[in-house]
Amino acid sequence: MAMLELENLRVSFPSAEGPVDVVKGISLSLGRERLGIVGESGSGKSLTGRAILKLINRPGVMHADRLEFDGIDLLSQSERQMRHLRGARLSMVMQDPKFSLHPVMRVGDQIAEALRCHERLRRRDVKARVIEMLEKVRINEPEAVARLYPHQISGGMGQRVMIAMMLIPKPDLLIADEPTSALDVSVQATVLDLIDSLVTDNGMGLMLISHDLNLVARYCDRILVMNAGEVVEECAAGQLQQATHPYTQGLLAAVPQMVEDRDELPVLDRSRWSGT
C-alpha cells in the first residue's frame, strides 16, 4: 500500500490580478521507495514538498482533494497534531545549512531538541543517541563536534548535521529539498550516498527534490519532471534518456557533458509548451 497519497494539490498566492496558482493540481502516490522531483526554479517542486508537511505560510493557500499519510488524513489534522507528525514521521532536509541551523545554539543541542520533542528520554540516553547519530552521518570526533556552533563547521558538515537532526526520530518519509546544491561535487556524493544508505537500511521513503537531472537519475527509482506547477512527465530513473516531453529533453540537452563536442548548448525554447 502506498504510504503517501496526494490528489489534486493546488498552492496559490494572491497577486494584484487575483490568486495565481503556483502548483496546479498535482497527484502522486509514494510507497517505501525513492522518488525524485526535478524542475527549474519556480516550477513548484519545493512548494509541493512543503505542502505535504502543511508548511505553506500565509499569504500562500494550499488546497488538495486528498492528502493521506499512512492512513492519516493530514488535511483534517490540527496544527497541534501536525507538530507531532512532523519530524517524528515525516521530515524534511532543507537546502542550505547556513540558514536552516540555529546560529546561537550548539549543534548537539539542536539535534537533541529534535529527539526530545518526540520522545521522553533520560538526559544520558539523549546524549548517547545524538553521538550515535553523528557517528552514523560519518562525523569524526562526534563529542567535539556536538559542542560546536554552526558557524564553526563547514557546509558539508552542516548538511550532515541537518540530516542527523532529521533522521534521529526515525521518520517514515524523508523529504530532501535540494540537500546538496550548496555543496561541492566531492562532498555531494558523500552526502547523497549517506542519505541513500540510511534510507535503504531503515526502509524509509525518500522524496528527493532537485534541479540536477543526472543526480536524481543516479539516486532515485522513479522521477517526476515538473514545469510551471504541473507534472509534465513521469518515468523510471533508468529511462530518463528516453524521455519524450520536449521540456525534459530540453533540460537534458542543456547540461554540458564531460565529453563535449557541441559549440553551443541548446537553450530551452519556452514557447514550445504552455506556461512560463
Partner: peptide
C-alpha cells in the same frame, strides 16, 4: 543558476 539558465549564460560568455 539552473541548468537551463546556465546553458544560456555559458553560450553568452562564449
Amino acid at each position: 543558476l539552473d541548468v537551463s539558465v546556465q546553458a544560456e549564460i555559458l553560450n553568452l560568455l562564449k
